[in-house]
Nucleic acid binder design. Sequence first.
RNA 1: GGCCCCGUCGUCUAGCCAGGUUAGGACACAGGCCUUUCAAGCCUGCAGCACGGGUUCAAAUCCCGUCGGGGUCACCA
Length: 519
Amino acid sequence: MVRTRFAPSPTGYLHIGGVRTALFCWLFARRHGGQFILRIDDTDRDRNVEEALRPILEGLRWLGIDWDEGPEVGGPHAPYYQSRRVDRHRTAVERLIEVDAAYRDYATPEEIQAEREAARREGRPFVYSRRWMATTPAEAARFEAQGRRPVVRLKMPREGTLVVEDLVRGTVEFQWAQEQDHVIQRSDGSCLYHLASAVDDHDFQITHVIRAEEHLSNTPRQVFIARALGYPLPRYAHLPLVAEPGSRTKLSKRKLAKYLRNRDFAQLMEHGRRILERLGREVDLETFNPVIVDFYRQVGYLPEALLNYLALLGWSLDDRTEHFTREELVQRFSLEKVNRAPASFDPQKLRAFQVRHMLAVPVQRRVELVLPFLQQAGLVGSPPSAEERLRLTGVVEAAGDRIKVAGDILEFVEFFVPADRLPYDEKAVTKRLRQPPEAKGLVSRFREELATAERFEAEELERCLHGFVEREGIKVGQIIHALRVAITGKTVGLGMFETMAILGRQQCLDRIDRALGLV
RNA sequence: GGCCCCGUCGUCUAGCCAGGUUAGGACACAGGCCUUUCAAGCCUGCAGCACGGGUUCAAAUCCCGUCGGGGUCACCA
């Protein structure tokens, strides 16, 4: 039985690189009919874990990455919080000391630091002298009498080679002598991450440790712990890092200002910012950041589009297939096809996936996706009236691929406000209504055609306009741009005839009247 | 700096293990077509094997080296 785990620490947000790792863990487990476990690495945290965890769980759920064991779902190996497993960890530490794989060390941080400095000055690699290692109870008592408090350190081998068969990177060799006597238990008795991780992975019967490359160099100490404790070793797979746009450096939440200098990234952020503005919401950079998964939920990305894009960040099936549903990913995923080089995050490509997935969403579901945005902006009721819903459906249908993300519906306010509250773009009015000498007359004569048109439907209206154009002896362009500004207040929008049909006769007439009044 | 990992168009990648392809696809970009605006769509184009040696009839692919990039070196996770 394959068992994988994702082990986030409760930081208060779900990082795009983190969720890519979670996705690969999840896909691998699902692909092999195994189980995916969520463990919370909250060692050394005294902040509000529940609160800091919520965005992470929400993000995973939003993407459809479900866990078989972990917070909120429980499981046979509970608890799934490292902070509640300290007894297990301490027992393991005691055992490591018993088998001489670890020792109590009474050095102060300053003394260790001094040794490090000395090594650096002499240009040799730092190897702890183990001067304050207590090998007997008497020695320990003597140190304690000096008021020293011990940490527990790993007694790492000082010769030999460790060979790891990594499922992504192949054979990787480490020299034991390069490893430090890492601290696994603090002087206050609490245990450190590497110890806890190795112990919990074993307790949870994790078969495959799949994580980002930054953990590759941590592998020896975890292998050392597992071996000393007599655990069977999990298989390891180290995934390529998710890198900054156009770079190979690890993507980081804190470097937003730097990324904003990248044109594509800035565009992505700007798009989101515009949607939030129309929603009347403040932009909080702590959570509204394209490095964080929640950004995409807030502006109305499709979870399946993000998932699809993320899957291709370091993995590919072949030389042509790019479009995957969640189910297809589960069927086709394999660690063998995971790439080794870092993959940089490309906002444009993500957007392309979003557009493609959005296009595949049936109109009814698109209406549902878009509705909350209009409601938040106060443009339709909660719940919407039958009339509002009908109009919305018409807009969504006519908008077609113009709605890239659900929040884009807010580009089309003209359909959701009455004539007297329609905003007019001054520049557009000048250019299309005031400046062309014939514009006002044409629009006002066409108004009478609209007033008497038989059926107020797109096709009929198109016929109507073409007839008008012929009789007036003008070109379509001479009337339609002016008409668009008069009716919608701006120069860009949906098809003119669909727009009029959706608004209905009275709205169109009222708007033309109002526009003419402005000229 | 030590150790480890990585290096195919600007980006994501196929090809590498089992040498022979006009080095393929996608996104982006440029131009064109279509057109009532904006999108979309269609067509065309631009663009890559980091470098240097070897092995071989033949190297993106195998070997060695160089250079470049990244990760990691806490009583963080």
